[in-house]
Design a protein around this nucleic acid. Structure first.
Lengths: 158, 158
DNA sequence: GTTGAAAAGTGCTGCGA
DNA sequence: TCGCAGCACTTTTCAAC
């Protein structure tokens, strides 16, 4: 097996600054970032490639406004499992429920914590009754409907 | 005031298909989308501009892996307020807490529901004690630490 | 509203320091 | 390892359908 190509796998201050700019606006041109940070465009490119290889960058995604697309109800679900060992099987079932956008295995009162986006309250009730509470192992759920999303942002690297 | 420029402000099937592709990978070139949907590149551009003006598209953001940047602890907080009327004042204070990435005004047991990302459990405790529980109007909080994020995706438009 | 091509700008790949 | 310059590609614009 050949020796792995030596390369710097640490994240330095320049990397952090690049990420910080792109996390606010992923469409910022490399040339503009380069100008701001007083380095060449090629350097930005090399750093981005390194960060991608390291797995720091998972990709870029388009942020849409769900309400404008007819998704008016965002809710959080606390899910109780009969036994913790049923987690993996339950998650596999829940992955097929498209309305679930986020799902965590958590400490505290609930076993599973999920975020769900639906068209309206009827749609929410339908998903809860027909697709979630029917999953084997799921005992009961508690629903928290979001009336207002006041903060939505990325982690700050500063 | 001049007459507003007439333009189609409805979202049709083509718009949905464009959004669907870009929500999976925001870096897909317009030319490739155009080829897939059998329209010209110019059309994709016009539609995207319309969707931006309509506020359907909020922007594009880089997805990073928080763990690789030293953020190992994700948690959800259920926050109890003394009075619901203190919501706005409390949110203003909480906006200054950088570790909070998402905050909702919810129905159910809690008044406020927040998602928080920290370096480690000590950092989490510090933020809770010093920056959150000290906010006027906040009575107490319940913490759910995420041990595993099993689902993280966007809403499906299909 | 859509098309197709031209113009402007960006991303990528060597070579040199 | 970084910076510069040329090439390939994408985005953007615009006249015409």
């Amino acid at each position: 097996m050949p020796h792995r190509k030596a390369q710097n796998l640490e994240i330095d201050n320049l990397d952090i600054q690049i990420l910080s700019i792109l996390m606010k606006n992923a469409t910022t041109p490399y040339t503009e970032i380069a100008k701001d940070l007083i380095v060449s465009g090629g350097t930005i490119h090399v750093r981005m490639k390194k960060l991608e290889e390291m797995g720091v960058i998972k990709g870029a995604s388009l942020e849409v406004n769900p309400q404008k697309l007819g998704f008016d109800v965002t809710a959080f679900l606390g899910i109780f499992l009969e036994k913790g060992s049923q987690y993996n099987a339950a998650v596999e079932k829940l992955k097929t429920v498209n309305e679930i956008v986020e799902l965590h295995y958590t400490t505290g009162s609930y076993s599973i914590f999920a975020k769900i986006v639906c068209h309206d309250t009827n749609h929410l009730r339908e998903v809860l009754n027909e697709h979630i509470q029917s999953v084997p192992g799921i005992q009961r759920t508690e629903t928290f409907i979001s009336l207002e999303e006041s903060i939505k942002r990325q982690i700050s690297l500063d």
